[in-house]
Computed example of a mutant assay.
Amino acid sequence: MTLPRRGVLLGAPVLALAACTPSGRSNSPAEGGSSHVMKTVMGDVRVTSRPERVVVLDTAELDSAITLGVRPVGATHTDAASGFLDYLPKDRLAGIRDVGAMLNPGLESVAALKPDLILTSKVRHGDKYGDLSKIAPTVMTESTGYPWKQNFQVHAQALGRVSEAARVTAAYGSRVRELTARLGGPAKAAALKVNVVRFVEGADIRIYERQNFIATILADVGLGRPAVVDQAKGGFAYEVSPERIDLAAADVIFYATYGDPGKAGAPRTLAGSLWKGLAAVRAGRAHGVDDQLWIQGIGYTAADQVLRELAELLPR
């Protein structure tokens, strides 16, 4: 088992740039400032052109805000020890108020912060849209995860940071091309088959397919994927029991654990003969990675760090 080190650099960091109640302002910005209308999955929303008090209700929205140089006044917490995902820079998180669990944010806590913008997605909080929109203009994307690049552009428009977003995406593209070149070019990158495996407490083992955050990064770099990643109909993940972990076979395997490792079955599987018999494991090309970063992060700040770890861990 090889744990990633954070010392290898791949280009410059992506981090770009350095009173309301539930019956209050409704889904429109405060009077007196400039604003614009956004077309969202929930309909047209008028937002302040440069919001200053932003509340984010999921990890992708927090990554977007931090990446664009916006420090939210409030955010929901995850199961990370710190409340917020550990890969995010601590100085950028200082002063952000916790407004409850990601799947059950406290509406009173959100309202108490007097936000002028709320960012989230329909898949997470569509059922709360009516209540949230009474607190502040609420911009929702349809989903999270796989469409993270498109969602980032929505977040940038809502935050009034479109030019900053253009610089972020250009920098990411440069880093991707640099990594592909370091691997020997597109043909050699495509010939290298990579799998991502996640041990999940209370569920089967997941072999990540193509319709998710981490898979988009692998695709951007041009890395090959084994045939198993096209097994599930939804394209998100193919679930296997520990007795079928041999299906994770690839030239390189990255694995992460969500929840308690013991309850997720990671130690037992990693100590088993099927895992140890995989060619990637025998060759020292199976690497333990941070679940918060590789799976939960969902944004350009996370993607930047994943690229740096890929640069260190992939064979050249």
Rank of each mutant, 00 (worst) to 15 (best):
L3H: 14
G11D: 02
G11Y: 11
A12P: 13
A12V: 12
P13Y: 03
V14D: 02
L17N: 09
A19C: 08
P22A: 12
S26P: 00
A30G: 14
G32E: 07
T48G: 08
T48A: 09
R50T: 11
R53A: 08
V54H: 00
V56E: 00
L57H: 07
D58T: 13
T59V: 14
E61S: 06
E61G: 01
E61N: 11
E61T: 13
D63T: 04
I66M: 08
T67M: 10
L68H: 03
V73R: 00
V73Y: 00
H77T: 10
D79T: 14
D79Y: 07
A80K: 03
A80M: 02
S82W: 11
L85M: 07
D86S: 14
K90T: 12
R92E: 06
D98T: 08
D98V: 15
G100M: 03
A101G: 15
M102Y: 12
L103E: 15
P105I: 13
P105S: 13
G106W: 12
G106V: 09
L107P: 01
S109N: 15
V110W: 11
L113F: 12
P115C: 11
T120F: 03
S121W: 04
K122W: 15
K122A: 13
K122Q: 15
V123N: 04
R124P: 06
R124W: 15
G126W: 15
G126I: 10
K128N: 15
D131T: 03
K134I: 04
V139A: 01
V139Y: 02
S143K: 10
S143C: 05
Y146L: 00
P147F: 09
N151T: 13
F152I: 03
L159M: 04
G160L: 00
R161A: 06
E164A: 15
R167P: 01
T169D: 08
A170P: 04
G173R: 14
G173T: 09
R175K: 13
R175C: 03
R177M: 14
E178D: 10
A181Y: 06
G184D: 04
G184R: 07
P186H: 14
K188T: 14
K188H: 14
A190T: 02
A190C: 04
V194K: 04
V197R: 05
V197D: 06
E201T: 10
G202K: 11
D204K: 08
D204R: 09
Y208Q: 01
Y208F: 13
R210T: 15
Q211P: 01
I214D: 08
A219F: 12
A219G: 15
D220H: 11
V221W: 05
V221P: 02
L223Y: 11
A227I: 09
V228P: 00
V228K: 03
G234S: 08
G235E: 09
E239C: 04
E239P: 03
V240P: 01
S241Q: 07
S241L: 10
P242N: 05
P242T: 06
V252F: 06
I253V: 07
F254Q: 04
A256G: 11
A256Y: 02
G265A: 12
R268F: 13
T269A: 02
L270N: 05
L274P: 01
L278M: 02
A283W: 03
R285V: 05
A286Y: 05
D290I: 03
D290N: 11
D290Y: 12
L293Q: 12
L293S: 01
Q296H: 13
G299N: 06
G299F: 04
T301A: 06
D304L: 08
V306A: 08
L314K: 00
L314S: 01
